[in-house]
């Protein structure tokens, strides 16, 4: 056995940070590289949801045979596909964190030089990859099966995507914070929490349909403004910049709040000595 001295390299400061983020991403990507069931699982639900609502839209169109029915079908499919962006972004981030917990690897990760914000950056990057892997095939199949082209929303679609992803990350950071606080008991939130917000996000109907008392609550969600904006584009061909601006501002508030909660719960987990035993 011989230990050789390796040359020390002094890279610029951003490079070690990028490498640490890539290191954690590599850990997750290596899993997907070999496992087609994992890849399939990413695409399964978005495609299934798209099919159910696609057939529903087709049924409405054939029964009613009118332009409003076709419009309603487009609204349903757009709503489903864009909601999946939020859902997959949130789940992609939360589940990547849970993967570390399930493999009892957090003890090693947290004693490495990986900073907590770098871990969050890696989880966000994984969330984008997982979301695109799941949602893009569903978008393409919607075009192939139902001649519905989500990209017909135009360049504003990118801004919708960005807002929906940021909100997904904010909710995911909240879930991770709760897992840090309550351990494995908070795991189910990773799958279910966003479904509780869907009725208030006005995915398939305008906010005005909600009871008056719930409308202010709905308007605190960035997703509500995105879906209102989506309907404005599809129904009137206009981009509602006011809704987009509201979505961005609300997202800033949500993500800042989630970041503070995460930082606090991470510190508290270190105080309680929970980082080594979390998930057990």
């Amino acid at each position: 056995m011989k230990i050789r001295s390796l040359p020390m390299v002094q890279p610029p400061q951003w490079q070690p940070m990028a490498r640490r983020i890539w290191g954690l991403m590599y850990r997750h990507l290596a899993l997907y590289r070999r496992s087609w069931p994992r890849l399939l699982e990413l695409m399964y639900w978005p495609i299934l949801q798209m099919c159910i609502w696609g057939f529903t839209a087709r049924f409405l169109a054939t029964r009613m045979g009118s332009n409003p029915a076709i419009m309603a079908g487009g609204l349903l499919l757009s709503g489903v596909l864009l909601w999946e962006v939020t859902l997959r972004s949130q789940m992609g981030m939360s589940i990547s964190f849970l993967e570390e917990m399930w493999s009892r690897n957090l003890g090693h990760v947290f004693v490495s030089p990986l900073r907590p914000f770098e871990m969050v950056a890696a989880l966000i990057a994984m969330s984008v990859i997982r979301m695109l892997t799941g949602v893009l095939p569903a978008i393409l199949l919607a075009w192939a099966f139902y001649a519905f082209n989500l990209f017909s929303l135009g360049p504003v679609l990118v801004l919708f995507f960005v807002n929906l992803m940021i909100f997904g990350w904010a909710i995911a950071l909240g879930v991770v914070s709760l897992v840090l606080r309550h351990g494995a008991g908070a795991e189910p939130l990773a799958w279910g929490i966003l479904f509780g917000l869907a009725p208030f996000s006005a995915v398939f109907y305008p906010v005005s349909v909600l009871p008056a008392a719930l409308q202010p609550l709905a308007l605190t969600l960035p997703t509500t403004h995105v879906f209102e904006g989506m309907r404005a584009v599809l129904m009137h061909g206009t981009v509602r910049w006011d809704h987009l601006a509201a979505a961005f501002v609300l997202n800033l508030v949500w993500i800042a709040g989630a970041a503070v909660l995460f930082a606090w719960q991470f510190h508290q987990a270190r105080v309680r000595g929970a980082l080594m035993s979390i998930g057990e």
């Binding site: 290191g23 590599y26 899993l31 490495s112 030089p113």
Partner: peptide
């Protein structure tokens, strides 16, 4: 992580420790 190979695990930590 038990689903990663030994080499992949060492690569992960090699990156984390730069």
């Amino acid at each position: 992580p038990h689903r990663l190979t030994v080499r992949e695990n060492l690569r992960v930590y090699g990156h984390l420790y730069n």
